[in-house]
């Protein structure tokens, strides 16, 4: 990954004093500032090829994830007995399940689109890799979700999975028949992991810009115009490296 410029703010009239020994706080500040430079935060305009339904599925997937998290939080508030017996509990449980169905369907269609477009082109390999990680992380989250339904389905799945994991030789590391453990994996551990991976995925997309279809040319470095407006002192060469596009 190319190094981002240290700061997008115009140089202050009185130059900031550089400490003899660079502190980690100063380094962290520069890193955070360069993570998604101003001008690449949210798209103001997009290349013409983005006007296609196939580019909608990443955001549709993200929107489903938001509904999943909100309905999951409500389920945690009510608890197991509530989602089994109350009408509202049933409803929220169903919202949670169906948003997961939508999440996976849109994620896989997104994956198909990116696969057939070879969207890892143009220094976007890490975007593809974080997408793949999000996919496998989501599988684990969905699996532990099935385990904590607290019904016969969950019991059946957990005993089958226990045998499968033992046969694969990894059963000693976690106990899928331990409801408490799986509950915590599902509601705290795995959502945090998936959430963090998705944040990195989106940050990478904002930095690299959307991949052009095969044969199409990228009109200009994505966000370049806006970035130039935000930091007029910056040379076009830095802009080009930052966005991973050859000048």
């Amino acid at each position: 990954m190319s190094r981002a410029p240290t700061s997008l703010r115009p140089e202050p009239t009185e130059p900031r004093r550089r400490p003899a020994h660079d502190t980690w706080t100063a380094a962290l500040t520069r890193w955070v500032e360069g993570l998604v430079p101003r001008g690449q935060w949210l798209p103001e305009r997009q290349p013409v090829y983005v006007a296609s339904w196939i580019y909608v599925f990443g955001v549709a997937c993200l929107a489903s994830l938001v509904v999943i998290i909100v309905s999951g939080l409500v389920l945690s508030l009510g608890g197991v007995a509530w989602w089994h017996v109350s009408t509202l509990g049933h409803f929220v449980n169903s919202v949670h399940l169906w948003s997961v169905e939508l999440f996976f369907a849109t994620m896989v269609i997104h994956l198909w689109g990116k696969f057939f477009m070879a969207s890892w082109r143009g220094d976007r390999g890490l975007t593809w890799a974080t997408g793949a990680l999000a996919f496998f992380g989501s599988l684990g989250t969905a699996f532990t979700g099935y385990l904590i339904q607290t019904n016969f389905d969950a019991q059946w799945i957990s005993t089958q999975a226990k045998d499968g994991l033992n046969a694969a030789g990894i059963g000693a590391w976690f106990n899928v028949m331990d409801l408490g453990q799986m509950m915590l994996w599902h509601v705290s551990l795995l959502p945090l992991v998936v959430g963090a991976i998705v944040v990195v995925h989106i940050v990478l997309v904002r930095r690299r810009g959307v991949a052009p279809p095969i044969g199409a040319t990228e009109p200009s470095p994505p966000g370049a115009a806006a970035a130039a407006r935000a930091a007029p002192t910056e040379s076009p060469a830095t802009l080009a490296t930052r966005t991973g596009v050859e000048p």
Partner: peptide
């Protein structure tokens, strides 16, 4: 099958 149909329609 529905997912494949949605994919083709999106294209």
């Amino acid at each position: 099958l529905l997912m494949v149909v949605v994919f083709v329609l999106a294209l």
